[in-house]
Design a protein around this nucleic acid. Structure first.
Length: 237
DNA sequence: GCAAAGATTTGCT
DNA sequence: GCAAATCTTTGCC
């Protein structure tokens, strides 16, 4: 069994916190319909001096949650169409967070699949009528991802699978009674951890662009494709 | 007040 | 392999 995720674990060094979040459970809802996934990929964003971190611009309306207490969910909209979920770390006033990049679905997989299908259908409806005439792709329950391993294999997909939006910004993920929450990994469970450069931050100057602040489980089928296979190939031996 | 780009994903060439 | 989708936030005039 799993238990609550202690907020004390989020107070320390964000790089250590990022590693400790690998293997933790992300949970949405309760009972038989609960969606549960194991975190297999994260990235650390550390304070105003990290020029890849949203806190680099100082306190703004968007990133205010990052300046708050640890254990809160920092959720923002990226590219106008996807949300990203972060776990706020370090004491209040120290703006750092860990981006949840990928989750391995464990329970409620059908619920996640449904959320994904609804998302694609909604996007399709807003496109020109010509698009409506084309057959739906990716909405089928069958296909390569039928085992569900890829349902949350990316930061945007995590939020789709767990129905996470701006309404969840600021929520306390360490509250065991919360609808969206973290839970600790089962006692004795251990996963290998690989470090590599963060993904999608080409706008950041060195040395931040190359800092190995992305952590993931090598070889896990639910890790995002963006930089997984190539790095694994070079580091897996 | 306006233009540009973004911690992404998908589908077409 | 590349560009579109889509909208909020940021940066500059």
């Amino acid at each position: 069994m799993t238990g609550p995720f202690p907020v004390e674990l989020l107070l320390g060094d964000t790089l250590a916190v990022a590693r400790s979040l690998i293997g933790a459970r992300l949970v949405r809802g309760s009972g038989p319909d609960a969606r549960i996934g194991r975190i297999v990929e994260v990235e650390a964003y550390i304070g105003p001096e990290d020029l890849a971190c949203h806190a680099r611009t100082g306190l703004t309306r968007r990133n205010a949650t990052m300046f708050g207490p640890p254990g809160r969910a920092y959720v923002y909209l990226v590219y106008g169409m996807y949300h990203c979920l972060n776990v706020v770390t370090e004491p209040e006033g120290s703006p750092s967070a860990v981006l949840i990049r990928a989750v391995e679905p464990l329970s409620g997989i059908e619920h996640m699949r449904r959320a994904r299908a609804e998302r694609l259908a909604a996007a399709r409806r807003t496109t020109p009528s010509e698009a409506n005439a084309r057959p739906a792709v990716g909405t089928s329950a069958a296909g390569p991802a039928s085992n569900g391993a890829r349902l949350a294999a990316g930061p945007g997909l995590v939020c789709v699978a767990f129905s996470i939006g701006r309404a969840d910004d600021g929520a306390n993920l360490c509250d065991p009674r919360a609808d969206l929450r973290l839970e600790a990994a089962p006692i004795g469970e251990s996963l290998p951890i690989q470090a590599g450069p963060r993904v999608g931050i080409d706008y950041a100057p060195e040395p931040w662009r190359s800092r190995p602040w992305r952590f993931y489980v090598p070889g896990n089928a639910s890790v995002s494709v963006a930089a997984g296979p190539g790095q694994d190939a070079g580091l897996a031996r």
